[in-house]
């Protein structure tokens, strides 16, 4: 139970929020935007100097530090005066930036919480189709080229099929059919892998073939094939361990979306939204607001 609480992003968010609040309450005393005191701490000066050093690859001189401080004070004054005059209001860039920062802070907190095995397993179960393993098949095949035999190919195929059926499963096939770079033996492969070599049409046809019998002829983009399906594995849902990375990626992306929406939903409760349409059809509630 405790683990679950520790993992809850909202809790992290609130904790950080509370920490920030306390920090400003205690440390900022009297130097906030509305005060007339401007305080620059040793730590902040150190930060300015570090910023300078990062850009110029050397520490600032005394004169330069003074310049940095003066500039910072100017900036602070400008910001306070501008905000006091309301210049920040209705500024699209500032609004977007604030929103971005808030959402990002939320996302960072969210990303810091690793999903639990149970959550991932639940996601996998719910979204099984996304991860389903394709059916697999292993087979032997003999190729007959229409280029080489023309209209006789079909008859050749049927004759050969009859011979093969009589000969049994372990007949050597290396010298049967026409020479080809297509593999005669295909180990257990997904249908997509079969299609990569033999084409879609052939790959689909193998699905209907019985196991342990010579079948055919089956058509591919290359010609005709006689096929002995050795074994088949039905499509299945993989174990979490097999697809963990993909599941984790998808789960976290989805959780981020859901929780961001939930955060807005919660925050929205604090507000009364009034939408004034042309006809002044204010319903006094939230029905017109889209928080996400």
């Amino acid at each position: 139970m405790m683990r679950k609480i520790v993992r809850e992003p909202l809790l992290h968010f609130l904790t950080i929020g509370a920490a920030l609040f306390l920090y400003f309450h205690w440390s900022g005393g009297g130097s906030g935007p509305t005060s007339d005191r401007i305080v620059l701490t040793a730590g902040q000066i150190g930060h300015l100097a570090a910023g300078f050093a990062k850009t110029w690859q050397r520490p600032p001189t005394e004169v330069e530090i003074k310049g940095l401080i003066d500039d910072w004070i100017r900036e602070e004054i400008a910001v306070r005066e501008a905000m006091a005059s309301g210049l920040d209001r209705d500024d699209t860039i500032i609004r977007r930036r604030l929103r971005q920062k808030l959402e990002f802070l939320f996302e960072e907190v969210d990303a810091a919480v690793p999903p639990s095995d149970r959550e991932l397993q639940a996601w996998l179960t719910e979204n099984a189709d996304l991860y389903r393993l394709e059916p697999q098949v292993s087979f032997r095949q003999i190729y007959l080229s229409r280029e080489r035999r023309g209209s006789a190919t079909e008859d050749d195929a049927r004759t050969l099929l009859a011979r093969l059926r009589a000969a049994g499963p372990d007949t050597p096939i290396d010298h049967l059919g026409h020479p080809t770079l297509l593999p005669r033996e295909v180990e257990m492969s997904s249908l997509a892998e079969v299609a990569r070599t033999f084409g879609q049409e052939f790959s689909r046809s193998t699905e209907a073939l019985p196991v342990g019998v010579w079948s055919g002829p089956i058509q591919s983009g290359f010609g005709l094939h006689l096929v002995w399906v050795r074994a088949r594995v039905a499509g299945s849902l993989p174990d979490l361990a097999q697809v963990r990375l993909a599941v984790e990626r998808d789960f976290t992306a989805d959780r981020r979306r859901r929780q961001l929406a939930a955060m807005y939903e919660r925050l929205l409760a604090k507000y009364r939204v009034v939408i004034e349409r042309k006809a002044a059809d204010d319903d006094g509630g939230k029905s017109g607001a889209n928080a996400s």
Binding site: G28, H47, K101, E108
Partner: peptide
């Protein structure tokens, strides 16, 4: 404004 800057610092540190 200062809040923003501090959040910025925290974000920068996380980054």
């Amino acid at each position: 404004m200062k809040v923003n800057r501090t959040i910025g610092l925290i974000l920068a540190a996380v980054f």
